[in-house]
Amino acid sequence: MIASIFASRILNDLLGGITAGVVIGLVALSLVLIWQSTHVLNFAQGAMAMFATYIGMTQLDHHLNYWVCALISVAAGFVLGGATERVLVRPLYGKADINPIVVMVGFLSLLEAIAAAIWSGTPRFIDPPFSSIFFQSDGAPTGLSPFALFQIIAAISVMAATALLFRFTKLGLQLRASALAPEVARLLGVRVNRLLTLGWALSTAVGAVAAVIISTGDTGLYPANMETVFIAGFIAAAIGGLESPGGALLAGVVIGVVMQFVNDYFNSGYAGFVGVILLIVSLLIRPQGLFTKNAQRRV
């Protein structure tokens, strides 16, 4: 009896952790996409995704369907990402590391403040399109709800689609070439500048998918609602290796599960610190990231 309650609690945490983890993985993927193409760590990524989600989800006020609003959010992310690359990031290529960091940190606080100015800081709750009541198994909740299942499937689909795009399409080949060897790509007629813009647009659209998922349900949509998951996503990306999308996803799930267990068995106040410690330990073991193949990385 006791054992079964215990087992059910572990299962609950595991499933809850995976649900949170795939979203962390999405955020990490979005960071990796930008890092690979432009070697900028986008500190404003969470805020940009949040802002795009506001643009889409406030259309619920005009009686638009949830899915239409979600689509608008992702499209807004795409446009915002591309515009950001053109206006803010392009002048920074080739500058010292600190310049893009400072600009993106400034953009982060600017976007959060603008969102609060337009839509107020009070959370806005968005009804999930599927029930968020846990499935039952033998009369006990499983830690997995229809909405959570949707969340997992959506996140994995986005990641798979991104991987396919990069691996098997002409566009993907050009995107990878622009990231790996921009000068060679230009000599072959690839319009590298456009592709960098597209890279930012795609990445921010992926981030917006994560933000839509996070804002739906009990967390709510508010200007700072991506901060925690952004940090977790960064940690996942750094642990998995900023060069490795698959590694980022896996690390995201691991972090999601670990934090869920910390929340449940200790205290949610420690989750952030556990994340930092995970990051430190993994960097000490393997500074190039746990899942990168090539040993050399410019850190």
């Binding site: 900028v40 760590l41 500190f43 940090i231 960064f234 750094a238 952030g272 994340g275 960097l283």
Partner: peptide, 12 residues
């Protein structure tokens, strides 16, 4: 770490 990695870690 250097640059962005370090900044991300201090943020965390």
């Amino acid at each position: 770490l250097s640059g962005p990695y370090l900044a991300g870690m201090t943020l965390a």
